[in-house]
């Protein structure tokens, strides 16, 4: 005890610097957690968080969600869309970062980088407008071509076959350049000595990528993977809410859109927070599990 205290005192400047960060987390992350209590109450705005009666039984609102005939399809959709976005959100980003790194022409590199991360700043409403302009069955450009040349049309946005691909595709297009930034930064941090040594040993470009670049950013990749797993059950509410329609509910309705429709529109905050808590617990478990797995390669973050 005494020893730990002396050690802490020795580094007091560091602890002092940590204080604002701690204060932030306590105020904005840990403090509001007590609000999760309404998941176990019949929350009534007039009576307030403390005054509302406890739910009977305590898991009543969880049961509501679980008993919904849509429970399993919601969970499955959320998981699947999230998984697709995880794979298609990380791998192309890494690939783009490596390609950008390998480009010799600096001006060209800058242009590509700027243009590729620009869509990140568009809102989903605008992206949806663009998707409609291309893919709409009655007025879309692509369907007009199909009709003219092949004599048929495809209802991309109303078909369960294409909808998830469109979700993932637009997500990829929107955030590709943005996600490459962090990998590019990590690559820039790899010691040039390693590349030089590899060159001396006669390694070609691909060899260098495989044996130097990728291992060099492995820890960043694992870190980001673990962080993203924590949000596994957030499959992108704003995007889906804007894009979906009744035809594609079976493949597109996720937990968040369902909660939005049933919980908030019916003023049922208790159920909304019960589902939120449920999502957080799953996310937490995934993060723990992923860290365990990462430990096998010695890349665990704690």
């Amino acid at each position: 005890m005494g020893k730990a205290w002396t050690a802490a005192w020795k580094h007091r400047a560091l602890y002092l610097m940590m204080l604002p960060g701690l204060a932030y987390f306590v105020t904005y992350k840990y403090g509001p957690m007590y609000g999760a209590i309404i998941a176990f109450k019949d929350y009534n705005v007039a009576q307030g968080m403390m005054g509302s009666a406890w739910a009977d039984p305590w898991y009543k609102h969880f049961l509501y969600f679980y008993r919904s005939p849509y429970f399993s399809s919601l969970l499955w959709n959320t998981f699947l869309i999230s998984l697709y976005k995880l794979v298609w959100g990380m791998l192309p980003g890494i690939a783009l970062a490596i390609m950008l790194f390998e480009i010799g022409n600096r001006t060209f590199k800058r242009w590509v980088q700027t243009i590729s991360y620009l869509p990140h700043f568009l809102s989903w409403v605008i992206v949806y407008g663009m998707v409609m302009a291309f893919l709409s069955e009655s007025t879309g450009l692509i369907n007009m071509w199909l009709q003219e040349w092949f004599g048929f049309k495809i209802g991309f946005l109303t078909s369960t076959d294409y909808f998830r691909s469109i979700l993932v595709g637009t997500d990829l297009w929107k955030d590709l350049g943005w996600s490459a930034i962090i990998y590019l930064a990590a690559i820039s941090g790899v010691s040039p000595a390693l590349f030089e040594a590899a060159t001396v040993d006669g390694a070609g470009r691909l060899r260098k990528i495989w044996h130097v670049t990728l291992p060099g950013i492995r820890n960043v990749i694992v870190l980001l993977l673990i962080l993203r797993l924590g949000h596994m059950l957030d499959a992108g509410f704003d995007q889906i809410y804007i894009m979906y329609n009744i035809h594609v509910y079976p493949v597109a309705d996720i937990i968040d859109t369902w909660v939005f429709r049933t919980g908030l529109e019916q003023f049922n905050f208790s159920m909304a927070s019960a589902v939120g808590l449920f999502k957080s617990i799953i996310g937490f478990a995934l993060v723990l599990a992923a860290n365990r797995v990462a430990k096998l390669w010695g890349e665990n973050i704690w």
Partner: peptide, 15 residues
Amino acid sequence: VVADDKTTYETEEIT
């Protein structure tokens, strides 16, 4: 009841 579940199912199937 979760009113929206019924409406959703009804609309989905009729579609």
